[in-house]
Design a protein around this nucleic acid. Sequence first.
DNA 1: GCACAGACTTAGAAGCTCGGGG
DNA 2: CCCCGAGCTTCTAAGTCTGTGC
Length: 780
Amino acid sequence: MNQMQGSGFKSRTFFCAAQLFFGEEIWCKPVFPLVRKANRNDNRHLFLPCILADSHKSSKSEEKHKHKEHKHKEHKSKDRDKNREKSKHSSSSSKNHSNSEHKDSSEKKHKDKEREKDKDKIHSSGSGSGDRIKKENGFTSPPRIKQEPNDDYTSSIKVEKKPMKRTREDDDVDFKPKKIKLEDLKKAKKRKSEMVTKCLIIFKQQLGSILKSWEGFERKWEEERYTDGVKWKFLEHKGPVFAPPYEPLPDKVTFYYDGKPMKLSPQCEEVATFFGKMLDHEYTTKDIFRKNFFKDWRKEMKPEEKATITDLNKCNFEEINEYFKAQSEARKQKSKEEKLKLKEDNEKLLQEYGYCIMDNHKERIANFRIEPPGLFRGRGNHPKMGMLKRRIRPQDIIINCSKGSKVPPPPTGQKWKEVRHDNKVTWLVSWTENIQGSIKYIMLNPSSRIKGEKDWQKYETARTLKKLVDKIRAQYREDWKSKEMKVRQRAVALYFIDKLALRAGNEKEEGETADTVGCCSLRVEHINLHAELDGQEYMVEFDFLGKDSIRYYNKVPVEKRVFKNLQLFMENKQPEDDLFDRLNTSILNKHLQELMDGLTAKVFRTYNASITLQQQLKELTNPDENVAAKILSYNRANRAVAILCNHQRAPPKTFEKSMQTLQTKIDAKKDQIGLARRELKGAKVDYKVKRDEKCRKSVESKKKALERLEDQLMKLEVQATDREENKQIALGTSKLNYLDPRISIAWCKKWEIPVEKIYNKTQREKFAWAIDMADEDYEF
DNA sequence: GCACAGACTTAGAAGCTCGGGG
DNA sequence: CCCCGAGCTTCTAAGTCTGTGC
């Protein structure tokens, strides 16, 4: 029944439950209450963008449309003209729609004034677009029934009790068949009492597990959720781990300027090493990178250095590069003992700084190390690549912890920038980074209660969307006909977000980041309309750079109305103009918020990813196949989602090589098969001639050998296809962020696949909540 | 209603580890 | 035993979205 054996999870939950019951400290993962099941049936079909061989890099960094305002007016009047003819149709159908909406929505009073204002010039029945849908999932925090037993948690945290273990010697003594002396008797007695204690513990654990299944018991966890944005009541930690100080280069490593050796000041040298280390990277050949680096490097130079070093092209970092390569090689070559020592030191650091106490739980911290200084590596065509990321010092750091806790001491002789006690946020440490001026945080690991709960909540919102999605789709289809440009644009954008799982697309500050877009920020140049393409009507060809400058390329057939709308949106616009000039993410999300509590653009991505996985699993899993084949099906379902979400990766550097090795293996196998065939033929001839038992057996065995070889070949070929299909597709992101883990857990339980085959240790920790609550017939 | 700060999630790459095959 | 590569872990950039103040 339990699929989690070997994962260590089972015992952990038991431990947890027992402790809870017996009022001891809780130092383990949270247990979440069970949730009710969602209804079935979703008829959304798959839409898979085709992934191109290379991601391109946009070279454009032109100035954006300054005359938006002017254009708005132009478009508005045109829009009105165009719509005049359609108005009859539109108003009648929107009335229908309004009726149907009315039935379902229970709160009509929350009408938005703005919306009314927007629509003043038009139709009678505003189509009920903004009707608030009653909240259904109910995961706002319930009122706290019970007071936290110990709100002002003192820092006298009990460490896990030493296990009642004895040393090996004791045991050895006990097992010697000696005469029973008084001492032995004492020992035996002691052992007996320890056995009793052990039994008691086991009993406690089992009792805990029984209690765990009692729903009311589990609800205790819910009580821990706070209201009013409070995230915790107690928080104590050891502060961050700073990057190690700079170690100057040994004298034998020389930097050359214009062919002449030059000794650099430590400050200047450190920055030089950042560049030297990266010499093998493509970055260092890029003009922007070099320019930015050189500018920032010069700021770190002493006046004499600044006077001498005026041209980066005359700098020779070769020896620095060699030095670091040798260092990394030496690290690899270290002896077992040295490596073990290093590992232990690391572990010690982790034990000391890698955990914190948050509300009775010892929680793992995600990133307790401060980012070391270095050169900024933006993604894609980033205007700031190569800039110096400066070293973070204690006086840059803000510490967040609870009032009654032990504040982590800053390094001797130094001070924190600030110590605050803000329990409405989840971070422990923050600082401001110097490249974009944004704030960086130290937060908890995904396995923590605070992250797990949020994650669960995310999927619950997506499930709520599932219940309403038909209605929302009907609504945006209706809005394609709206007389208002704003509404039409919103409806078409939402259609793309829903159908193609595009991101919302916030506006970005120009020149600060790479030129990438999402749905709302698409520009005319990013789409191409084809009345007919590849034998299909009304095709839209997307080609743009999305998050992380990953190229999105897709040819999609759309409905005629969408097509016509796009033509309208593009009229009289320059390629660099916004496609949806009357829309931004704020407008869109405000609208979505009115349709469903908690609904934002990204919920569609979560919903569509999860529902796709569920459908694909149903479709692809063959009950008769073995575990390996089923896992292949799972991976295929996962891949379908990754394709939908456009999760790409650079083909692994070793890809070609490893493919080649595999191909060699395949070829060798084919040769073997050819040989085996010939041998079989020969044996058959022999048998025909001689007709004896020996020959018959020989034929049999040769036949078997051939079959085995053919089987092996097939497996290799499947492996090759699988690898080829995965060449540019990253499965991890969707697995970690978009797929409701309960779907996978349920699938595992249903087909008796060990969860470990689907989720590794870290993933199981992150999804502990789901492993705990999903049964085999869970429906997203 | 807009800009901006802040908080938090999502993302791919780089670095590291460990197990299987030669 | 060693080497290689897949898979795991770590790192931090780049998004989304909310709240606030003008």
